[in-house]
C-alpha cells in the first residue's frame, strides 16, 4: 500500500515535469539540436579523415552519438532539481505528506521519457545521414533499452550532484566540464586503440565505452575487421554496461535520497 502510494506520488511529480516538455518545446528542440549538429559535423567534417576498417564512419559514429546524447539528456535531472531547489519548490514538496522518494523517482522517470523522445529523433537523423541497423529488431530494441537504462542510472548521479550544488548555473557548467571528457575519452567517435597509451587505458575502462560498444553490437554496426580491445568490459560490453548500471544505482540512489532529505533552499 505504501509502495503504491509512493509510486502514485512519483507519477504526479513526473507528470508535472513532462508538462514542461509540452509547454516549453524549445527545450526538446535544443536538447536535440546540439547532437544533430554533432552528427553533421562528425559525418561531414571529420568523417572524411577518420578511417574505420571495414565500415563507413557514419555507421560507426551513431552509437557514440546516441551514448553522448542520452548522457547529456540525463544531466537535465540535475539542473531540474537544482532549479526546483532555488525556486523553493523542493521546500514545498518536502513540507507535504508525500513519499520522500517521489521527487527523485518522478524526476528521473520524466527525464527517461525525455531521453526516449530524444533518441527517436536521433535515430531518424542517423537514418537520414546513412546509418543503418544491421541486426534484428529485437536486438535493436535491446540496444535502445540499454542506452536508456544506462542514462537512467547516470541521472541518479546527476540528481545527487544537482542537489549538492543547488544552483542550476553552477550545475550546468560543472556537468559540461565533466560530460565532455567522459564522452570523448572513449570509443564514441574514434577507435580507442588509436589513442595514446594513458588515454587508451582510461577509454577502455570508461563505462561510456562499454555502453557504446554494446549499442554498436546490438545495432549490428561492427565489422569483422575490428576486434575489441582485450579488456573484460569491451569483450563483454552488454554485461559490463548492465554492471555499471547496477553500480551507479547502488551508489547514487542512496546518496541522492540522503541529499534530498537534507535539502533546503538557500
Amino acid at each position: 500500500m505504501k509502495l503504491l502510494q509512493a509510486l502514485a506520488d512519483g507519477a504526479v511529480v513526473a507528470k508535472r515535469n513532462l508538462i514542461k516538455i509540452k509547454r516549453v518545446p524549445d527545450l526538446l528542440v535544443f536538447s536535440t539540436a546540439a547532437p544533430i549538429m554533432f552528427v553533421l559535423l562528425f559525418a561531414y567534417v571529420f568523417g572524411g579523415s577518420i578511417e574505420i576498417p571495414g565500415m563507413d564512419y557514419r555507421e560507426f559514429l551513431m552509437a557514440g552519438i546516441f551514448a553522448q546524447t542520452v548522457l547529456f539528456g540525463a544531466t537535465i535531472t540535475g539542473s531540474g532539481l537544482a532549479e526546483d531547489m532555488t525556486k523553493g519548490i523542493i521546500d514545498r514538496f518536502r513540507s507535504l505528506p508525500m513519499a520522500r522518494s517521489a521527487v527523485l523517482v518522478g524526476r528521473t522517470t520524466s527525464d527517461l521519457v525525455n531521453n526516449a523522445l530524444v533518441i527517436v529523433i536521433m535515430m531518424i537523423t542517423g537514418l537520414i545521414v546513412g546509418w543503418r541497423i544491421h541486426s534484428s529488431p529485437l536486438e535493436a530494441l535491446a540496444g535502445v533499452a540499454l542506452l536508456l537504462l544506462f542514462a537512467y542510472a547516470f541521472s541518479w548521479a546527476m540528481a545527487w550532484i544537482g542537489l549538492l550544488v543547488r544552483s542550476p548555473e553552477v550545475f550546468n557548467n560543472a556537468s559540461f566540464i565533466f560530460i565532455f571528457p567522459i564522452t570523448y575519452i572513449a570509443n564514441t567517435f574514434v577507435q580507442s586503440d588509436r589513442l595514446p597509451p594513458v588515454l587508451r587505458h582510461i577509454a577502455e575502462w570508461n563505462p561510456v565505452s562499454a555502453v557504446t560498444l554494446a549499442a554498436r553490437e546490438l545495432f549490428g554496426n561492427t565489422s569483422p575487421l575490428q576486434t575489441p580491445p582485450d579488456v573484460w568490459p569491451l569483450q563483454h560490453p552488454v554485461l559490463a554496461s548492465l554492471g555499471w548500471v547496477v553500480v551507479f544505482l547502488l551508489i547514487f540512489v542512496p546518496l541522492a535520497n540522503y541529499q534530498y532529505k537534507r535539502a533546503v533552499a538557500r
Binding site: 514542461k20 523553493g88 519548490i89
Partner: peptide, 17 residues
C-alpha cells in the same frame, strides 16, 4: 506534514503549470 500548510519566502509555484 498532513496537518500543516507552508507558504515560503518565494512563491514556490511551477511556472510552466
Amino acid at each position: 506534514r498532513r496537518n500543516i500548510g507552508l507558504s515560503g519566502q518565494y512563491a514556490a509555484v511551477d511556472d510552466n503549470l
